[in-house]
């Protein structure tokens, strides 16, 4: 098997707040192969975005990457100095965000914001830079790109702005694109268009994508493999088919069970009871234990005493749950 493009090992990103240390990302490991789409799913506050910002080394204060390795083509990104990581951003690894209109600078024209990428990394300026920007706008399917290049973000719809963001992110054909909830702020028809566009360009350019979302529909549509996160940890990682056909972790089962199915009449949607634990004051043992149906059904005591490890149960299928752990003394 060839070496993965990106390998995150035991990543720990903590936030030092006045109330205590919030372990937003606590021991996350996963990998992304060249040209594949990895989905990271989970509820709000489970550490998806912080994981992606950690890869870019864009963690805002008072956050800090405490531990771990982020190997990109074999190079640990956490060992790079400021100048080296700055060179990576936008060129080898790009990122697009949830709020497209807010992510574009309101005082610069769309074209100028795209051509800045060429200026920063390739020293292409002026007219040629502008032409390249227009070309990118055409590539992301913006009608009348010459005119749109001169538009300001406030003159654009959300979908249009997200296309501009994608154009900007893919300008230099990065090897990895991190898309942090790229369609959440858009309405459904635009969502589909943006996803189509991303998939098309991904095939064309061969970039790998980390797609962060809480929308399992988007995952089913787009991803090759999926990592499910809960309270700062990966709880299950497998390919997308297995995830939907044979979810192992009780949390994943709950998530999939809560999807309403078209045509099926239910009085109530399935829900996972309880709320996401406070990241400053995490429960002892398995973080999902207080909400876990399997734990109560099977009457497992170890869950609230000892934290489970992420173990491989099949090729390409890892789960963090005592139910499947051979080290479980009660199993």
């Amino acid at each position: 098997m060839p070496a993965p493009l990106l390998e995150v090992q035991n990543l720990q990103t903590y936030f030092y707040t006045r109330d205590g240390v919030a372990k937003a990302v606590d021991g996350v490991s996963f990998h992304v192969n060249k040209g594949e789409v990895l989905g990271i799913v989970g509820e709000s506050g489970c550490g998806k975005s912080i994981t992606s910002l950690s890869i870019m080394r864009l963690i805002p204060k008072p956050g800090k990457i405490e531990n771990g390795k982020i190997l990109f083509n074999g190079v640990n990104l956490l060992d790079l100095n400021k100048a080296e990581i700055t060179k990576m951003r936008g060129q080898k690894i790009s990122m697009i965000f949830q709020q497209p209109t807010g992510s574009l600078n309101p005082v610069y024209m769309a074209g100028a914001q795209i051509s800045e990428v060429f200026e920063l990394h390739k020293n292409i300026k002026g007219k040629l830079g502008h032409e390249k920007a227009v070309e990118m706008l055409r590539k992301v399917g913006i009608p009348d790109p010459e005119r749109r290049a001169k538009a300001y973000p406030h003159e654009m719809s959300g979908g249009m702005a997200q296309r501009v963001m994608i154009a900007m992110a893919l300008s230099l054909q990065p090897e990895l694109l991190i898309a942090d909830e790229p369609t959440t702020a858009l309405d459904v028809t635009i969502q589909a268009q943006i996803l189509d566009l991303m998939r098309g360009l991904q095939r064309e350019l061969g970039s790998a994508i980390i797609l962060i979302t809480h929308d399992l529909g988007v995952v089913a549509e787009m991803c090759d493999r999926v990592a499910v996160m809960y309270a700062g940890q990966v709880v299950e990682e497998t390919d997308v088919r297995t995830l939907f056909r044979n979810p192992k972790h009780p949390y994943t089962q709950g998530l999939i069970g809560s999807i309403p199915i078209l045509g099926q009449v239910k009085d109530e949607l399935e829900v996972i009871p309880g709320v996401v634990p406070n990241l400053i004051n995490l429960p002892q043992g398995c973080r999902f234990a207080p909400r876990c149906k399997a734990r109560t059904e099977q009457n497992l005591t170890i869950c609230s005493e000892q934290a489970p490890q992420l173990i491989q149960i099949e090729t390409n299928h890892k789960v963090r749950c005592w139910l499947y752990d051979s080290a479980n003394p009660t199993a």
Binding site: M56, L58, P60, K82, A83, T86, K87, M88, R89, G90, Q91, S94, M95, F97, Q99, G102, S103, L104, N105, P106, V107, E116, V117, L120, H121, M165, M168, A169
Partner: peptide
């Protein structure tokens, strides 16, 4: 400095000086 577009500027590989002078200060 806490706005999304400042994060975008950083994410596209602008140096800190440029992020502040070109992207943040103007606003």
């Amino acid at each position: 400095l806490g706005k999304d577009y400042v994060r975008t500027a950083r994410a596209k590989g602008a140096r800190e000086l440029r992020v502040v002078s070109r992207h943040a200060l103007r606003n």
